[in-house]
């Protein structure tokens, strides 16, 4: 009797779980799916009323237009370069800083950590006008550095805090053993500690990369030259033949093109993260 009821409850639960997952997926992915559908519809189908949800005619012309008539490769390269540079810089500065704040005798360590935490709470929009002035003073307008430096700085606190919590989990004995074996601090960080914190490096790296890839406001303001624009700005500034025409198709195609690198990156590194976690297997 109990068996039966618990069994039927399980079946009921399974259905509810399935429904919940389906609802969540539809809720999250519907806008993206809509963008994708729009990007492969012909113009006539995009503009008709009532809406055509699932078109009978498909076209790739919006995509070819992006690359043939506009320099979208260029925008992708700009975004890629700026994002990769910010990510690497963030990890290169943040990791040693996090290590120092974990294990080295740094004076007033707690104050520094407190300040770092406060910085993460600071709305970054408020920095914007100040940064504009600084960029102007240093003559950094229309220079990759105008974006790389702020992106790095904005993501440093999170990188430091996440890496610090990983370093704290590593056993102190490991570092002592490395010191006795003759590793200096730099070698120890590179050869012993970083391989063990690879999952953390990848995770924080991906967060920084996604931020830099998607950032709009700084990119819009600091980069006015056409050749230096990033994907989000270029997408937003797509315009039709006349003032009254909104090029929905190309915009949707650009959105898809701008999203694909992120999806590929996350999927690729997600496998790395899982591998890293299972191969680590320190305990036993």
């Amino acid at each position: 009797m109990t068996d039966q009821s618990s069994h039927s409850l399980l079946a009921w639960q399974r259905i509810a779980l399935g429904l919940a997952i389906a609802a969540l997926l539809i809720f999250c992915l519907a806008p993206i799916f809509w963008q994708f559908l729009t990007s492969v519809k012909v113009n006539a189908d995009i503009e008709t009323t009532p809406n055509i949800y699932f078109p009978s005619r498909y076209t790739l012309s919006h995509y070819t237009e992006l690359f043939a008539r506009r320099p979208f490769w260029n925008y992708l390269l700009n975004s890629g370069f700026i994002s990769i540079a910010s990510t690497l810089l963030c990890l290169a500065i943040g990791t040693p800083a996090a290590y120092s704040l974990t294990r080295q005798p740094v004076p007033s360590k707690n104050i520094i950590l407190g300040v770092i935490l406060i910085v993460t709470l600071f709305p970054y929009i408020l920095l914007f006008l100040g940064l504009l002035e600084i960029a102007r003073a240093f003559g950094l307008g229309n220079n990759y550095l105008a974006l790389i430096v702020p992106y790095t700085a904005i993501n440093l606190p999170l990188t430091i805090l996440v890496m610090r919590s990983f370093f704290q989990q590593l056993p102190q004995d490991l570092e002592d053993a490395a010191k006795i074996d003759g590793y200096n601090i730099g070698q120890m960080l590179l050869q012993i500690l970083l391989p063990l914190t690879l999952p953390a490096l990848v995770t924080t790296g991906i967060l920084t990369f996604i931020f830099a890839w998607n950032e709009f406001l700084f990119a819009l303001t600091f980069m006015t030259e056409e050749a230096l624009k990033t994907i989000p700005v270029a997408t937003a500034q797509l315009s039709g033949a006349s003032q009254f025409e909104t090029p929905y198709g190309p915009i949707a195609a650009a959105t898809v093109v701008g999203t694909i690198p992120l999806v590929v990156l996350v999927l690729f590194f997600q496998r790395k993260i899982v591998q890293g976690l299972t191969a680590g297997a320190v305990k036993g």
Binding site: D173, D176, G182, Y183
Partner: peptide, 20 residues
């Protein structure tokens, strides 16, 4: 002197082997 320059070897309770 730094630990690495003392020419001493140490065995730890937790072994402290490099897992990777």
């Amino acid at each position: 002197m730094r630990p690495g320059d003392r020419n001493m070897a140490m065995v730890f309770q937790s072994y402290a082997l490099y897992p990777h």
